[in-house]
Amino acid sequence: MPQSFCQLHAHIVFSTKNREPYLGESIRPKVHAYMTGILSELGCSGILIGGFVDHVHCLCQLSKKEAPVKIVQMLKQDSSKYIKTLDDRLHTFGWQNGYGLFSVSPTHLDSVRKYISEQVEHHRVKSFQEEYREFLERYNVSFDERYAWD
């Protein structure tokens, strides 16, 4: 076969260190735009980023040229450096060590887009930890609660 084809849609989720509410309404759009740029540079497409004060959700088609772990590493590393430049009070900013990376069927892209777009409303009634537990359970990921948070 002379060409390589890849269509891997992913829903990436991670929080700020200790779920600190660093991503206020005034900086969230800047951070999301910057993260979109990072993902684009890495060859990802179809990008939607949303979230709340303590976490982000990224939906994208993963690049066929970069390993998913490298994409997440670069996304977190480069955006963390950027966030620290936005305000002197953000000099201690950091992302949690871990992340969730969940596959998304093409038939479910619209529902995931809607879910990400409604994050602010969603988190009026549910914490990030509750939401993340539900993802892990829905995807049948076994985890130890003692090590799930940092």
Score class of each variant (00 low, 15 high):
I38H: 05
Q119W: 01
S4Q: 09
K84F: 10
A10N: 08
S103D: 11
Q96T: 05
L42K: 03
Y22L: 09
S4I: 05
L86A: 03
L59S: 03
Q119P: 02
Q3Y: 08
A67Q: 12
G51C: 02
E121W: 07
C58I: 01
Q61M: 13
E130S: 05
K126H: 13
V72I: 03
V125S: 15
F93R: 03
Y34K: 07
S105A: 15
L48K: 13
F135K: 10
F143N: 02
F135C: 11
N140P: 08
T107W: 14
K64L: 13
E121D: 13
S117V: 08
D150T: 05
C60I: 05
Y115M: 11
S111K: 15
R28N: 04
L75S: 02
Y115F: 13
S79R: 04
F135M: 11
L42W: 05
S105T: 08
F102A: 00
I116N: 06
L23A: 06
K17C: 08
Q77I: 10
L75T: 00
T92F: 14
L136R: 15
T36G: 12
C58T: 01
D150M: 11
L62V: 04
M35H: 07
L39P: 00
G24P: 04
A148N: 10
E137H: 12
K126P: 07
G98I: 00
T16K: 01
E66T: 05
G37K: 06
K30N: 07
S111L: 14
C60F: 07
C58Y: 04
K81R: 14
K76S: 03
F52T: 03
K114V: 15
T107E: 13
V72A: 02
H91F: 15
T36H: 11
G51A: 06
K64V: 10
V141F: 09
D87K: 08
E118T: 15
Y82A: 06
V120G: 10
L90M: 12
I83Y: 02
F93I: 06
K114I: 14
S45W: 14
N18I: 06
K76R: 09
K114G: 11
E121Q: 11
L109V: 06
L23C: 04
W149L: 05
Q7W: 09
G94E: 09
C58W: 01
W95E: 04
Y115Q: 12
L23K: 02
K76W: 02
P29W: 03
I12R: 03
F143D: 04
G43A: 05
Q129I: 09
H55L: 03
S80T: 00
F52D: 00
S117Q: 15
Y139R: 04
K81A: 15
S117I: 09
R113M: 14
F5I: 10
T107M: 12
V112M: 07
H91N: 13
K30L: 10
W149A: 02
M1A: 09
K30W: 08
G43N: 03
S117A: 15
S15L: 02
A148K: 12
N97I: 09
K114L: 15
S117G: 15
E20T: 11
V112A: 06
S142A: 12
H55T: 04
T16Q: 02
R133I: 07
H32S: 12
S142R: 12
